[in-house]
Write a protein that binds this DNA or RNA. Sequence first.
DNA 1: GATTGACTTGGAGTTAGCTCCAGGTGCCAT
DNA 2: ATGGCACCTGGAGCTAACTCCAAGTCAATC
Lengths: 128, 128
Amino acid sequence: MNISEVGGKFGLSQDTLRYYERVGLLPRVNRTKGGVRDYTEEDCKWVEFIKCMRNVGLPVEVLIEYVALYQLGDETLQTRKELLIEQRKQLAVRLEEMQSTLERLDTKIDRYEQWTYAKDKLQRRPFN
Amino acid sequence: MNISEVGGKFGLSQDTLRYYERVGLLPRVNRTKGGVRDYTEEDCKWVEFIKCMRNVGLPVEVLIEYVALYQLGDETLQTRKELLIEQRKQLAVRLEEMQSTLERLDTKIDRYEQWTYAKDKLQRRPFN
DNA sequence: GATTGACTTGGAGTTAGCTCCAGGTGCCAT
DNA sequence: ATGGCACCTGGAGCTAACTCCAAGTCAATC
């Protein structure tokens, strides 16, 4: 698979894929004799994984470290696990924040619903 | 309340508060005769609201628009409501992404748990 | 064998969102 | 009234994460 196919498949630009590889966010992809990237199945799995993690905000820096550890082999299993646990923890925190903010927005929207509904009745306009 | 008190209360730097006000992310705060910001209760509510929304990733640009609409008065109730609904929608999407990614991480961590557990038994190391 | 188009690289540029700084002012305590 | 401190403003600088660009190469087609 070449870079445009992979980009198309995962919704990433070629520039982004090259950038990811350059900074070590993806393990180095093999080239054809001509120097063109030739993504294997495993490369694609990495791309998908990285995309997924970036999507929910894991920092590039952290993912670079994860990839680097991976490339060091089994010695780093424990460290990688801890890294993932830490990121999972932070993700859970953000998730909860988002959940409660979502509810807050719902409440707020509800109030808007009422105000716009009773708009012509000269309702007092509370905060926001 | 002055800027350092508000900053302390909500965990925002003075620079950030000034920046927020400068770009219109907060309604203009009144000054004392000396020119020093004097936050009212309502100002504080705005600060808290904005902080909360920024925390879950609503773009500054969008919040600026919301504040601007608010300042235009009741004419914009409908528009503001729609803005909130749109942001709520996007938040819900991200929330779901995060939820499934969290589960994915849990699965992955589980597998790490097993590998590190059975590490000395020369287990094969699968992808990641 | 010349042209075309997709790829390559290294490096510069961009965007969002702050964060820092210099130079200035007001207020309070000495 | 003078020193020190917290505040002010406008503007420059910074970080993360891309995104764009120029100049070059290769492979396939005319």
